[in-house]
Design a protein around this nucleic acid. Structure first.
Lengths: 195, 195
DNA sequence: CGCATTTTTGATACACGTCAATCTCCGTGG
DNA sequence: CCACGGAGATTGACGTGTATCAAAAATGCG
């Protein structure tokens, strides 16, 4: 069970105040806090559903700003949960970029990301999973996927379906599991995309 | 077939420069133009797909800002199409609201709208259509729905499925068709939601 | 009035959901 | 060191919600 706990500030307190956080809750909707730029990793944003449960709302990946609504409302609109190891730093960064332009860039980025997420919820199941992989793969051709259940929440499929699709992609050599200590990783892969 | 044509500026050139546009194309991705605030109506935003076709990306309803990325890039990111009669006015409005705060409000609004759209693409078909109806119903309890095909694009269902669901909602008296010239309207309804 | 567009409806197919069992991986404690 | 237990992942058998294909009806526009 995931419990909400403060962000780990122990690592890299040196340059530019980057914060490390392990997979797990980052902040909760309606709580107070600041905005962040996600330096690396994957974060899911959730609405609170009618029965208090988390309802997937959006996704943030490296470069995205999360929680900037606190600058306006003083509280977070969504809950944020790290789906992989993440690095974040406070936003705005206080560098020379003019505030208005920086905000505008964030708005444009948020809209494009939203379109990406919408696309992950349409079409055939395998294409949705591939779409997510394309979104998450890094420049070296590797990817650390979220848990099957989180992929299912993002794509509006069932985790059994996700499991079948990922195993199929492995058999097709599109996903090549990374080995850690000689054992088959279930979430880290080298990606070998056809297109 | 929908062809792109300029916005009709003939109506209400008086106060605050509000523009009327009939159902149809508003602007095209990559073209130049300004940002707009949608005063009334429903607009779909589309990405250009791999084969040049329109791929649904997001939805804008009354109060939303569309095309604000032109302020940054000088060109639209998405294509915009009116799904119902719309009224729009140029944005920013040039009133007293500070630019930064106004932008921030737009960003927060865009994020909430994106979460709404994501929710319209998850769960059972009937719930998705009901979700859209809830989003579009006005304060008087009436709604003018987009065409079945557009609802299908938004919810990632087929128009035949949408047709069946709407007919079912009519039979359940949740949607009460408005009569115009004595004929059964297929898109205007009085809404009688259970919850 | 006539024709193109949109909507409705029916019959059938299949992709994904559901339920259940098993397996792997890992941390914990005896 | 190994037994134990829990979380996550895999796999199989079967059910069902929606897609697909086809045809007709209703609507709206010139």
């Amino acid at each position: 069970m995931r419990l909400f706990s403060p962000v780990d500030r122990s690592k890299s307190p040196s340059a530019r105040q980057t914060l490390n956080c392990t997979s797990g809750p980052i902040y909760r909707a309606a709580s107070e806090g600041q905005a962040w730029r996600l330096r690396s990793g994957v974060v899911r944003l959730d609405n609170i559903g009618p029965k208090g449960e988390a309802v997937f709302a959006s996704l943030a990946i490296a470069g995205d700003i999360i929680g900037c609504e606190t600058l306006l409302f003083g509280a977070y609109t969504f809950s944020a949960t790290a789906l992989t190891q993440c690095e974040m730093s406070p936003w705005p960064e206080g560098d020379s970029v003019p505030a208005g332009e920086s905000l505008l860039a964030s708005l444009a980025q948020a809209q494009r990301r939203a379109a990406d997420v919408v696309a992950l919820r349409g079409g055939q199941a395998a294409d949705r999973v591939l779409g997510l992989i394309r979104l998450l793969v890094d420049s070296t051709g590797q990817v650390v996927l979220p848990m099957r259940q989180d992929i299912a929440d993002i794509t509006d499929l069932r985790f059994e379906t996700i499991s079948r699709i990922i195993k199929q992609l492995e058999r097709m050599q599109i996903l090549l599991p990374l080995r850690m200590d000689g054992v088959h990783a279930t979430r880290g892969f080298r990606v070998n995309l056809p297109a």
